[in-house]
Nucleic acid binder design. Structure first.
Lengths: 172, 172
DNA sequence: CTTGGAAAGTCAACATCGCTGACATAATAT
DNA sequence: ATATTATGTCAGCGATGTTGACTTTCCAAG
């Protein structure tokens, strides 16, 4: 019953609140589900040819975006345990895709960088993903893209939103 | 080099194409990643109290949205193998959350329905998710929501977009 | 200079949830 | 009658997440 409240109340609010009915919200949930599935399918298909999975892709993505970031920062961005990340990171370092340099100020820290080989895989993976994103952006148009970004940002957990906003976006 | 093409070209296109730079696209990728993580975290937290996982949630969601749908349809919507779905579906039926009625026209088919118990869990899970979605919608505003939905829809694989559009959205 | 704590790495065990392959059953369709 | 379809099931495997325990390294504070 408690979830009916906001739904039943929506129609009273006039046009500006109509989109907050439960069915509209459920439709948004489905949109996220289907879109995210498509969004990950392209890199997944590529990764089948390697011995890597989605976890490797995510690590590679953020190392590329913030060269030199520490393991701890990467842990926060990915939201997994160090044991889980370690497994992934070790194979990437062993295979020569990622370089872990001992920190110069704090020697306990490791600063992570993509090697040339790592950067190549990153481009292959992200190009697949960017290609779908680009097509969707073109189909939807600039103002839709702005709205898309606004809603996604509002949906994030506050702590990660900080990290998100701290990243380059080429809009400046 | 091939992924530079569209990026380098973006600046030539004037204001309307500026959002297609590689960095803008990567930022969109990150937005999807962080938002999706938040989006799934609420129901995941609830599911820890039960013996169910994300897969159960997804099945419950679609059975609720299309009561009476067949196993095959659900398979398509979820994009998993029947072996994977069967494991999930069996536990839901055994625990009395889902009812599988033999089809009346084709007796090979099973039509799936939520029981009262299943509907209760569905509401608990989806309320958590809708609550976050509602807050994001409110924060971003109606026109942002329209754009959000447009981009996500454009991102889907065509076959699933059909299913997506066939679902109730309360907009009619 | 010793010591406490932080950063990182590692080992073991386990759960979830994908997958493939093989096979059984029941019922429709030809 | 036979082929095909929808479903269910068993076995095994792989990727990725988890907790818990422990070690090593190293900065920093007493």
């Amino acid at each position: 019953m408690s979830d009916i409240g906001s739904s039943g109340g929506a129609k009273q609010g006039g046009e500006s609140l109509l989109f907050l009915t439960d069915e509209q919200l459920r439709k948004g949930i489905e949109a996220m589900f289907f879109a995210y599935r498509a969004f990950t399918s392209d890199p997944d298909r590529i990764l089948e040819n390697y011995e890597y999975g989605r976890a490797h892709h995510r690590a590679i993505h953020f190392i590329n975006r913030q060269p030199g970031l520490t393991v701890n920062t990467l842990l926060t961005l990915l939201g997994v345990t160090k044991q889980s990340l370690n497994r992934v990171l070790r194979s990437l370092v062993e295979d020569g895709l990622v370089e872990a340099r001992v920190g110069k100020t704090d020697k306990r820290e490791r600063n992570l960088y993509l090697t040339q080989k790592g950067a190549m895989l990153e481009r292959e993976l992200s190009e697949a993903q960017r290609s779908r994103m680009r097509a969707a952006y073109r189909a939807a148009g600039p103002s839709a893209v702005a709205g898309f970004r606004q809603v996604l940002e509002a949906m994030m957990d506050p702590e990660l939103r900080k990290f998100y906003n701290a990243m380059k976006d080429g809009a400046a």
